[in-house]
């Protein structure tokens, strides 16, 4: 960014953000470390990635039109909420166990693999799952947990 836009690139990004906001878009900054810093340093900003994202959330219809099925969305919600609540990483077996309570076994493994391929989840050699780069760019982790905890449960 510094190379393309010069040393005042942060100001340029802010101006771009204002213009994008008028179009219903926003800029999401994804830092190298998992936690978003309160006051990012120059080095942190230089290593960060900048994405253009939608300003408002998608509706269920829009998601379906983009090719997402409800059960896939639910599985991604469960996997990510579980990962975020356990400080960023959990064994894959644990997520599979949780998903198998509501989804067929054959679908669980396949769908998790698809999330990994699409960048929403990441898996290491110890079979631990993390939020992938795409989840970090697109999903507001705090909001997701607040949504899950705030939902009323019908017993």
């Amino acid at each position: 960014m510094r190379k393309c836009l010069g040393k005042d690139y942060v100001k340029v990004i802010e101006l771009t953000r204002r213009h994008l906001n008028e179009l219903g878009l926003d800029i999401k900054v994804v830092y190298e470390q998992a936690e978003e810093p309160m006051k990012p340093t120059e080095e942190q900003l230089e290593r960060a990635r900048f994405y253009v994202v939608a300003k408002e959330p998608m509706t269920a219809t829009e998601a379906q039109l983009s090719g997402w099925r409800v059960d896939e969305l639910a599985m991604l919600a469960v996997a990510l909420a579980h990962i975020y609540s356990k400080h960023g990483k959990v064994p894959r077996a644990e997520v599979e166990q949780l998903l198998k309570e509501k989804f067929p076994e054959w679908a669980v493994g396949m769908t998790l693999d698809r999330f990994i391929r699409r960048g929403y989840l990441m898996q290491d050699e110890q079979d631990m799952l993390y939020a992938g780069w795409k989840a970090r760019a697109e999903i507001d982790s705090r909001l997701l947990l607040r949504q899950v905890m705030g939902k009323e449960v019908r017993l």
């Binding site: 878009l25 926003d26 999401k28 994405y51 253009v52 994202v53 939608a54 300003k55 408002e56 959330p57 998608m58 509706t59 269920a60 998601a63 983009s66 409800v70 059960d71 969305l73 639910a74 991604l76 919600a77 469960v78 990510l80 909420a81 579980h82 609540s85 949780l98 309570e101 509501k102 989804f103 795409k134 760019a137 697109e138 999903i139 507001d140 982790s141 909001l143 997701l144 947990l145 949504q147 899950v148 905890m149 939902k151 449960v153 017993l155």
Partner: peptide, 25 residues
């Protein structure tokens, strides 16, 4: 969180994700 995830219906879980989701353009 785990208890909530077990109790919520798939449709509601999908809604939770959609509310927190700002897709890349």
């Amino acid at each position: 969180v785990e208890a909530k995830l077990k109790l919520l219906e798939p449709v509601e879980l999908a809604r939770c994700l959609l509310a927190a989701w700002r897709p890349l353009m």
